[in-house]
Amino acid sequence: MGSRQITEKSLVMLRSLPRLSLANIRDNPGSKHYPKRGRGQHSGDKHGAGNKGSGQRQNYMRLGYETGNNPFYLRMPHEPYYRGHHHRREYPPISLLEIQKLIDTNRIDITKPIDIASIVKSGLYRFFPDQKHFGINLTDEGVDLFATKINIEVQWASELVIAAIEKNGGVITTAYYDPHSLFLLKNPKKFFETGQAIPRRMIPPPDVIEYYTSAEKRGYLADPEKISQERLRLSQKYGYELPKLETDQYFNMLCERKDPRQIFYGLEPGWVVNLKDKCILKPRDEELLQFYAS
């Protein structure tokens, strides 16, 4: 039994062998591939470069050149399929199934509100604000088996997803974050270490203000009354009973939302967080307070 176990077998084997030293170690045979030099009839002589011409003289023609005739990459006129692609916003998707997996494996804390910072912290969401990523797009894969009550804040969600979350007694909000805020949310530790004051979150650009002020999309700037009307409408559309949030034990947590100018939960703009000394520097000056409150 003992001699068939891998670890025990190898360690026991070591005891009967000479002491492991610099002189008796080597790499696995076949792990190193040394480049073969060109010698002999086949790879020698002209060494694969052929006869005369730009090939042998290492004076190659540019890529795409077709020795004079109109090359393929110039035959087609400019077709602007990607015009303005660098102006468009991208919302990398994460499905409800993924969120459920993260909740099941304890990588997201459901007793606190979930926002983009907590999803990025879990380590399983690829998010790069410098590549025109503007937030989370919650997709509807796993909408049938999603069964958790959460307070989640994303940047884009479809009606089905909103219905699934509200059916389970949760709360979903769509909020806008400008790119600077997204960098902060992606790596809050790095930001706090710079010693800068937490900035204000910027308001959404004109083309997307309508989205974030609509109650159908649970926008963070929408009218709360209209949102509750929409919740009722969705419950009737998809045929589930609208759960009562007021009687819920997590009612306070589910109601927690960020101010439109706030980036992190619980931390106001203008504060400087000192991680080393575990203290927060809060401005007292009237000017600063007015600025950060505006």
């Binding site: 912290k121 809050p188 939960y265 619980g266 203290c279 007292r284 000056d285």
Partner: peptide, 19 residues
Amino acid sequence: YEFEIVKNPPEWAYVERLM
């Protein structure tokens, strides 16, 4: 600018959450 240093602030739980 005038500022105050709050040691062991009650909002530290929110900071811990972000780490």
